[in-house]
Structures are given as structure tokens and as C-alpha cells.
């Protein structure tokens, strides 16, 4: 089990909702895929017009599956990149380059109980959690907040699963976070995954109920802000100046210029892409750098962070 990249073939594409596409992937050579854990994701390299995108998607297939991987891709309304490509151009039979699975959101094995809160498409990592807990016997509850008409979209992945409740914006159906978070016994771990505002609200409600931060986990990537004002970045080692567009990340622009930049989560969580900042002030949007590192102003995470002024100089 040694390797870095995989060739995958699209086995099937299904639209499960107007903006949600289910993609089934198999090994292009007909062999077996590496097993992956609950909460794992893969990075896909997606060819776009004139450039390629690298997007990370949670695996929703059962943990350990080696015959096929399933992902669910939401069409981001403003996207001209990866999600648009998957929704508009990708065909069954196409092959894609993918990373081996990574995992920045694995369930905590010492937990006595797992409490999950998902917002919309944020349910995806929890679909594999549910399969894991069904197998390992982990006590759990999943609360999904979505639009009322969306609550049956994930039914194929929830068949036979216990402990799942749906909430939507109508009297008697809203999630009462303070009440939910006041009750659990010691040893419970909380996991939230959804839009940034929902994540923040869940984390704040847990803190207000006295939860120690060590028991509160949040999947940031996918929900991270990507766009912002356009700016320029000069890559000092390479001697290249790149223009970073409003709807792309600094990392996207660096890759477009053909400069190698290691990366993993593309969501400001893992720290792999941290780059030395020589000039300019960063607008930090990551979850990795410490307050002291941010204040020092010597590092930037180009996958999510941008320029406060019009220009940055990176030592790349």
C-alpha cells in the first residue's frame, strides 16, 4: 500500500437534486482502491478551460470500500471551476487523476458518544461516519439541517441507519442547539460540518454549554471562503508575477503559473501549503496559523488566504 496518485474512471453520474451530483469512481486499471476511513476525502484534478482545478471531496462510500468510491458534488453557483466542470462536462467513462485518501476529520476513537450536526451538503463526511458506527457499534446521533424539500435527497445513504434527525426552517422543526448541547453525558464528542455561519454557531453553542474545545470538531474545508478582491502576487524564487482573480485562490493562481506548491486539504486546515511571505499584508482565513504566527506576518496559507493590499511577495 504505497503510492501517491491514482487514475480513476467515472463509473456513473447521477443527479440526486438540482444542484447535487453523485459521482461513482473506480480504479481506471480495474484494480482495487486503497481502503479509506470514515471522514476521509480525496483530491480530484479537474480539467477546466485553460487550466486545471484541484478540489477535495468527502468519500461517502462505506469505510474500507475498495471496489468503488462515491462522492457528492454540489454545484457552487458562482463557480467557473471544479464543481461546474463536474456538473457540466464530466462524462461516464472519463478518467481523472486523484490523490490517495486523506483524513482531517476522523471520528475520535476514545469518544463514548458521537454527536454530529450537518448543514446541507455538510452531511457528506457523516454518511461514512454512520456506516462506521453501524459496524463498530459507536453510540451516535446525527442532526441534519437543510431545506425541507432536501431531506429525502440522502435517503439512499441513510437506509437502515439509526439516530438520524432532520431539521428545517419551520416552527417545530428548527434545531434547538442549546438544548441539544446541554444534555450529552461526559465523554461525548461533537462534530459540525456545514456553512461557515452554521459551524460558528455550533461551536459557540457548545462553548456556552461548557464543552471543552478538545471535544468539538469542525470540518472546515469545502466551506471555506475562496473568493475576494483580485490582487497580484510576486513569486520571488520563480520570478513570476501572478494575477489572483476574484473567484480563485492564491494557490489556484500559483498552480496556474506552473509553480509547484505542496498542498493537502485546500481549506486552510492542514498547514501543508504554508508559504513564506516576504512583503505585503495577508488577510488570513486559515485555521492553522497561531495568532502569534499571524501577527508575525511571515507565513501565509495560499489555499484560502488573500492579500489585504493589492500585492504580496511570496518566497516561492
Amino acid at each position: 500500500m504505497i503510492g501517491q496518485t491514482l487514475r480513476l474512471k467515472v463509473a456513473a453520474l447521477t443527479d440526486i437534486a438540482p444542484s447535487l451530483r453523485h459521482v461513482r469512481l473506480v480504479a481506471a486499471d480495474g484494480g482495487k482502491l486503497p481502503p479509506a476511513a470514515a471522514g476521509a476525502h480525496i483530491q480530484l484534478v479537474l480539467a477546466g478551460p485553460g487550466r486545471s482545478f484541484r478540489n477535495a471531496y468527502s468519500l461517502v462510500s462505506r469505510p474500507g470500500a475498495r471496489d468503488a468510491w462515491d462522492i457528492i458534488v454540489r454545484r457552487v453557483p458562482t463557480s467557473r471551476g471544479g464543481s461546474a466542470y463536474i456538473h457540466e462536462a464530466l462524462q461516464a467513462g472519463d478518467t481523472l487523476e486523484a490523490s490517495w485518501p486523506g483524513n482531517l476529520f476522523a471520528p475520535v476513537r476514545t469518544a463514548r458518544r458521537h454527536l454530529m450536526i450537518a448543514g446541507g451538503i455538510g452531511i457528506t463526511p457523516f454518511l461514512s461516519y454512520l456506516a462506521d458506527f453501524a459496524m463498530s457499534g459507536g453510540e451516535h446521533a446525527l442532526h441534519v439541517c437543510c431545506r425541507e424539500e432536501e431531506k429525502d435527497v440522502f435517503a439512499p445513504w441513510l437506509a437502515g441507519r439509526s439516530g438520524v434527525a432532520f431539521h428545517w426552517d419551520a416552527d417545530g422543526h428548527r434545531l434547538d442547539s442549546p438544548a441539544l448541547l446541554a444534555a450529552p453525558p461526559a465523554g461525548t464528542h461533537l462534530y459540525v460540518c456545514g456553512q461557515a455561519a452554521m459551524n460558528d454557531e455550533g461551536i459557540a453553542a457548545a462553548a456556552a454549554a461548557g464543552w471543552p474545545a478538545s471535544h468539538v470538531h469542525c470540518e472546515h474545508f469545502g466551506a471555506a471562503l475562496v473568493g475576494g478582491a483580485a490582487f497580484r502576487a510576486f513569486l520571488a524564487k520563480s520570478g513570476i508575477e501572478v494575477q489572483v482573480g476574484e473567484d480563485e485562490s492564491l494557490l489556484d493562481a500559483i498552480e496556474r503559473a506552473g509553480v509547484a506548491a505542496p498542498c493537502l486539504c485546500r481549506g486552510g486546515a492542514c498547514g501543508v501549503c504554508a508559504a513564506p511571505l516576504l512583503e505585503g499584508e495577508a488577510e488570513h482565513r486559515d485555521h492553522f496559523l497561531s495568532p502569534a504566527e499571524r501577527n508575525a506576518g511571515r507565513l501565509i496559507m495560499p489555499c484560502v488566504s488573500r492579500a489585504k493590499g493589492g500585492r504580496l511577495v511570496l518566497d516561492l
Binding site: L181, P184, P185, A186, A206, A209, G210, W211, P212
Partner: peptide
């Protein structure tokens, strides 16, 4: 009484 996440 059970112990909860707010216990110290």
C-alpha cells in the same frame, strides 16, 4: 447524577 460536558 450523570456527568456532562459542562462538568469540571
Amino acid at each position: 447524577r450523570g456527568y456532562g460536558m459542562g462538568d469540571r
